[in-house]
């Protein structure tokens, strides 16, 4: 079973009317880093994940979650 990190950063940004650059500046990373986290290309460290959650004032689990993908069943 494989696990993939999913996130709702885009949703939270929309709710707070924030651009990627605004969010990036607030937590001290580059816009590129935020954009790649959003599309799942870059898995952020725990520190960045916690900073993003703290910025939006929610627990980290509300933004990041693991999506389990089953491997093909046998037989």
């Amino acid at each position: 079973m494989n696990a993939r990190l999913e996130n709702r950063i885009r949703v939270f940004r929309a709710e707070h009317r924030l651009s990627q650059a605004d969010l990036a500046s607030s937590i001290g990373v580059s816009r590129k880093t935020i954009s790649t986290i959003e599309v799942g290309r870059f898995v952020p460290s725990t520190i960045i994940a916690l900073k993003i959650a703290r910025h939006f004032g929610v627990p980290v689990e509300e933004i990041f979650s693991l999506k389990e993908s089953q491997t093909e069943p046998h037989g």
Binding site: A14, L18, S19, A21, R31, S35, E38, V39, R41
Partner: peptide, 14 residues
Amino acid sequence: QADSAGAAEQGVCE
């Protein structure tokens, strides 16, 4: 480049 194809958004989400 692989990233640039999928993530170009810069503005505020609507």
